[in-house]
Amino acid sequence: MSDPIETRLAELGLTLPDAPAPAANYVPYVISGNMLYVSGQVSMGPDGFITGKLGQDLSVEDGAAAAVACALSLLAQVRAACGGDLSRLKRVVKLTGFVNSTPDFTDQPKVINGASDTLAEILGDAGRHARSAVSAASLPFGVAVEIEGIFEIA
């Protein structure tokens, strides 16, 4: 493993899933110049969708774990967009995180920190990014979290 990102993933005991296929009429990513726009990745683990509503069914910690799963799917899409070469990833520019939550739940930023912290841990300063974390009344398939991303690539 000569790719430093792949090496770092292995050091952290993290494995990227296969890049998920689109669930509707859209493409998983679009490259424009050196910018890569990745469609929203829903929370999915080895056993399927990570579902539930924050503030009702899930704790902040559960939501943060779901956001980690989204971050790994985002990186899987980056790898696919870069022809399998994660070393082309220069930086994470922006994430937009959607949290399936009750009207009175206000810890969306803490949930999306699961993804932000993971990307910073894997990529260092290149993983630090601009971000939005917002509530959603519901998300596709009842998932807990969905995150889309903008990346700079070589």
Rank of each mutant, 00 (worst) to 15 (best):
M1G: 15
M1R: 15
D3N: 14
P4A: 13
I5V: 15
E6L: 15
E6C: 13
E6I: 14
T7G: 13
T7D: 14
R8W: 08
L9V: 12
A10R: 15
E11G: 10
L12G: 10
G13K: 06
L14M: 09
L14V: 06
T15S: 13
P17Q: 06
P17Y: 04
D18A: 13
A19P: 02
A21V: 01
A23Y: 00
Y26M: 00
Y26V: 00
P28S: 07
Y29C: 00
Y29G: 00
I31Y: 00
I31C: 01
S32K: 05
S32M: 01
N34G: 07
L36N: 02
Y37A: 03
Y37D: 04
S39N: 02
Q41I: 05
Q41M: 10
V42F: 03
V42S: 06
V42D: 02
S43G: 06
S43Y: 02
M44Y: 05
M44S: 08
P46G: 13
P46M: 12
D47P: 04
F49C: 10
I50D: 05
T51P: 10
T51Y: 12
G52T: 13
K53V: 15
K53I: 13
L54R: 14
Q56L: 15
D57G: 14
S59T: 15
V60D: 12
E61N: 13
D62F: 06
D62Q: 08
G63M: 07
A64I: 05
A66S: 04
V68H: 09
A69K: 11
A69P: 10
A69G: 12
A71Y: 07
A71G: 11
L72G: 11
L72C: 12
L72S: 11
S73D: 10
S73N: 13
S73M: 11
L74K: 09
A76G: 07
Q77T: 13
R79E: 12
C82W: 07
C82H: 08
G83S: 11
G83C: 11
L86A: 04
S87G: 09
S87F: 10
S87T: 13
S87R: 12
R88K: 14
K90G: 09
K90D: 11
R91W: 02
R91H: 03
L95C: 04
F98H: 09
F98W: 05
S101M: 04
S101V: 03
T102I: 10
P103Y: 02
D104P: 05
F105D: 01
D107T: 03
P109R: 07
K110D: 05
V111P: 00
I112L: 07
I112T: 05
I112M: 08
N113G: 01
G114D: 00
A115I: 01
A115P: 00
S116K: 08
L119K: 01
A120T: 08
I122D: 01
G124D: 04
H129S: 07
A130S: 09
R131M: 11
S132Y: 08
S132C: 05
A133Q: 09
V134Q: 06
S138I: 10
L139Q: 09
L139I: 09
L139S: 09
A144W: 04
E148W: 00
E148A: 06
G149L: 06
G149Q: 06
I150E: 12
E152Y: 03
I153K: 01
I153C: 02
I153F: 01
I153P: 01
